[in-house]
Amino acid sequence: MKFVAFERAKQGTGASRRLRITGKTPGIVYGGSGEPQMIELDHNALWHAIKKEAFHSTVLDMELNGQTSKVLLRNVQMHPFKQLVLHIDFQRVDANTKLHMKVPLHFTGAEESQAVKLESCVLNHVISELEVSCLPGDLPEFIGVDLSGLKKGLSLHVNDIKLPKGVTVVTHGKENPVVVSVVMVAGAEEAAPEEAAAPAATADAAAAPAAAKAPAAAAKAPAAKK
Rank of each mutant, 00 (worst) to 15 (best):
R20S: 08
I21G: 04
K24W: 11
T25N: 12
G27D: 15
I28Q: 10
V29W: 01
Y30H: 05
Y30T: 10
G31T: 05
G31I: 11
G31V: 10
G32M: 13
P36W: 03
Q37Y: 09
Q37V: 15
Q37H: 07
I39C: 07
I39E: 15
E40I: 08
H43Q: 12
N44V: 09
A45Q: 10
A45Y: 03
A49P: 02
I50A: 06
I50Q: 08
I50S: 09
E53Q: 12
E53G: 01
A54F: 03
S57M: 02
T58V: 02
D61E: 09
D61L: 04
M62Y: 12
E63Q: 13
E63C: 04
L64T: 02
T68S: 15
S69L: 14
S69N: 10
V71I: 11
L72H: 00
V76G: 03
Q77E: 15
M78L: 14
M78A: 02
K82N: 15
Q83G: 14
V85R: 00
V85Q: 05
V85G: 01
L86N: 13
H87C: 07
D89S: 13
R92S: 11
R92G: 11
V93W: 01
V93S: 07
V93D: 08
V93C: 08
A95S: 15
N96V: 05
N96T: 12
T97W: 06
L99C: 08
H100G: 08
K102M: 10
V103Q: 01
P104D: 04
L105D: 05
L105I: 11
H106A: 07
H106F: 06
F107G: 12
F107D: 10
F107H: 09
F107W: 12
T108G: 01
A110G: 10
A110E: 15
E111I: 05
S113H: 00
A115N: 06
A115L: 04
K117V: 01
L118A: 13
C121H: 00
V122N: 04
H125R: 06
H125K: 06
V126R: 11
I127M: 04
I127F: 00
E129M: 02
L130D: 04
L130M: 13
L130H: 02
V132N: 03
V132F: 13
V132M: 06
C134G: 11
L135N: 14
